[in-house]
Structure formats: C-alpha cells, structure tokens
Design a protein around this nucleic acid. Structure first.
Ligand SMILES: [Zn+2]
Ligand SMILES: [Zn+2]
Ligand SMILES: [Zn+2]
Ligand SMILES: [Zn+2]
Lengths: 139, 139
DNA sequence: CTCGTAATGAAAAAGATTCTCATCACCATT
DNA sequence: AATGGTGATGAGAATCTTTTTCATTACGAG
C-alpha cells in the first residue's frame, strides 16, 4: 500500500492523498469517519481541508483502496481494504467495532438474492450490541 | 393498528399522528422516507409540517409501531412494524425493496455475537443489487 | 523548466434531521 | 359544554454530514 497504489488508481500522487493513505495505515482505529481523518490530520499539523478529505476518501473507495460503511446515525466510516470482505459488530455504547466473516451467512445471502431474482452488487450487515466491556452493559 | 395504539404509546391522539399512521397503513410502498410521508400528506391536502413528520415517526419508532432502516445514501426509511423482523433486498437502480427472513442467518448472527462477547441489541442486513426488472440490469 | 490539467482549500450549498419557541389543541375536570 | 394545563404543532432556524463551486496551486508529461 503505497504511492504506486495511488498512481494505479489513475490519481496524481499529491500530499493530501499520501498523508491520508498513511494515516489509514497507521491509525490505531481501523474504522474512521471523514471527520476523524480530518481531525487526526489537524493534530499532525497537516493543512488539509475537510472537502479534500471527503474527495480523497471517495476516490480511494472508487479505486478499491478503501471501503465505506454507512453506520447508524447517518454518517459513514472508512477503512483500508485489506482484501477480504467482512461484516461488523458495533458496540452501541462505546463505539468499539469488531469484524467477522461467516461463510454460512455469505452463502445464504447469495441464495436469497437468487430466489428473489436479484443480482447482488453489495451488502451491508452490521450487528449492534453491547460489547464485552462491563461499562457497556445495562443495569 | 388504530388510535388505541397511539394511546398505548403514551401519546395524545392528534390529527397528525392519526393521519401518518393511516398513511403508513394504506401506502402502496411499505418503505417510505420522512420526506415521502410529508409529500404524500401534502398531496392529500393535510397541512402537517415536516418537523412533525420526523417527530411522529421517531415517537412511533420508540413505541415499537414503526421500524427505521438506514439505507445507503444517508437517509432512513420507515415502515409499519407488522410483528415479524425481516431484512431487506434493495435494487440500486429502481429502488425496489423486497423483504426476507432467514432463520439460518439470524441464528448465525446470534452465535457470532456470542463468540465476540457481544449482547445483540439490533442488526441491519441490507443486500443491494439489481432486481429482476430488465431495465435494472447492466449492459 | 514550462505548461496544461488535475487537485486543493475555503466557503457556500445541499440534503437529512433536530431544535426552538410562540401558538394551538387534546382531554381530564368542572 | 366551558376551562385550563400540558403536551403537540408549525415555521423557521440550527445542526450535521457531505458535496459543489471557484479561484488558486502544484503534479508531472514533454
Ligand atoms: Zn462497548
Ligand atoms: Zn471493517
Ligand atoms: Zn430494479
Ligand atoms: Zn421492510
């Protein structure tokens, strides 16, 4: 994952693109919103506009470098596409995100789509719940 | 599904609430956005503000009368809760929505949550694709 | 090194949803 | 049926996320 990936996407290798890609690679959280990315860049004294962050993330998504997930609450999170597809478990209290892949679910989805005459383009499966952290439990 | 349901939710039986509930029951499309509801009411010469539509739909959701789905594109659709949980298939071309329930998927989700130490609160599974309509196919 | 074109930043715009607040209307009580 | 208290409503302002506009800047091919 380097500047060549940016070039291969048909995009110029510019400072904002390099910095955003670096940040996605080195961030402790894999799932970040555009706002997150913007603020992290500000913290690193990078003068990159929010509009550019959105533009670049959208371009990276189109290029297959990044995946976008629409979370509850009307905002999206982005993550570096490390090859494998996966779905998400999100803690509704602390926001912790875990990933999983389940062959059975993936297979059933393909079968269901077929039964309904749909040709799958994409899917989104997000399980919301309380994570293992005691602080995130009710009562 | 009538005025008693509104009362049972601890809400006063007001004209906007009655009209919105009626509309959700009689609409040809089960899955409607707040904007949809607002416009349909305007078409029926009901003078109900958009803010009220949002408020009422949110209250109906809290009362369990209505379910909210966050679709791709950053907007939500609402539908009357007819008891059974179900997931969605959405055509990315014409917007057609079909519903399904799959016991295998539901079961695997519970198992996966357990494996990760999560206590499920909710989940959202949306399969995006091209529906059977020839007009919605590529090439 | 030069130049054309793509990329950027700032601000405005857009789209969805929520909030504010003055006014209005349910409905329990008289 | 009239009254009053409280919850509900409408209009518009405000908020939040994302996109667009446009003048300026900077890749990178030649
Ligand atoms: Zn948690
Ligand atoms: Zn992920
Ligand atoms: Zn279709
Ligand atoms: Zn549905």
């Amino acid at each position: 994952m380097d500047n060549q990936d940016i070039r291969k996407a048909g995009l110029k290798v510019t400072l904002p693109r390099v910095k955003i890609l670096e940040l996605l690679e080195n961030s402790t959280q894999r799932h970040v919103s555009a706002e997150n990315v913007y603020k992290m860049l500000i913290d690193r004294d990078e003068e990159i506009g929010l509009a550019t962050v959105y533009r670049v993330l959208t371009q990276f998504e189109a290029a297959g470098l990044v995946t976008r997930q629409n979370f509850e609450g009307g905002y999206a999170v982005f993550e570096l596409d490390r090859g494998g597809h996966h779905d998400h478990l999100v803690c509704v209290v602390c926001g912790k995100v875990e990933e999983f892949v389940d062959a059975t679910i993936e297979k059933r989805q393909r079968e269901i789509a077929k039964e309904h005459g749909f040709e799958i383009v994409d899917h989104s499966l997000i399980i919301y719940g309380h994570c293992g952290n005691p602080k995130c439990h009710v009562g």
